[in-house]
Design a protein around this nucleic acid. Structure first.
Lengths: 111, 111
DNA sequence: ATAATAGTAAACCTATTGGCTGACTATATG
DNA sequence: CATATAGTCAGCCAATAGGTTTACTATTAT
């Protein structure tokens, strides 16, 4: 299993759409047929199917055909890679939040 | 400071490009003028300037003009929001890795 | 004052994205 | 067999993305 930069491109791109993140959230509650995945959305089944395709191309979802039904499942490993990338920058929001905290504290020093 | 779904859209989209992630990585080593940010890339300065614009629109980078120079700094808080979203799915890669581990273990049981 | 430096702005091009519809395939059911 | 169900495929469309070049603005240096 290789992981290169283009994988991260795909992962982040897949997650950059509200509908697709909602699909991931839905699938976190369990495997579901495409039609059920699509139900909450106003768009066509075809459109949702495309979104699922984007997710499965990115490896975030797997689709298994049983009978005439396609069952969709979450595959979270690419998200772990994304988190691993993001974690390198954690120190920045730590220090920036700290600075913000200090600022607020200074502002309240006259209490 | 509000955070809505469109913020996450922008954050993930900003991170879905190799060049932009490289820019973030560069800025993690410290503030830098745009020209210096652009130096490692083969594309035009204009193109890099556009990438920085995307990052700053997403709140991942801030740009300050001093003299004729634009200094770029990393602003990691949006990334924290992205991680917070991703963390909800950590249990999936935990269990999936565990399953993979068990599988590999089973395969080696005859040692 | 002139010229170099740092960058933006605008116009353009091509490819991709996200949506649609309509026709089609495959499976299940009356 | 006929029909409903689950979904894909192909073609279309408008908007966005990522790159280019050429012209312009603002600042610094000679």
């Amino acid at each position: 299993m290789r992981h290169d930069v283009t994988d991260l491109n795909q992962t982040f791109a897949a997650l950059s759409d509200t509908t697709r993140r909602a699909i991931v959230a839905r699938l976190a509650e369990g495997e579901a047929p495409l039609a059920e995945v699509a139900a909450p959305f106003q768009m066509s089944l075809t459109a949702v199917s495309k979104h699922v395709r984007v997710l499965s191309d990115a490896g975030l979802v797997s689709v298994t055909k049983r009978g005439r039904t396609r069952y969709c499942r979450i595959e979270a490993l690419p998200m772990r890679d994304a988190i691993n990338w993001l974690n390198d920058y954690q120190r920045f929001w730590d220090t920036q939040l700290e600075a913000l905290g200090t600022l607020l504290q200074d502002e309240n020093e006259d209490d």
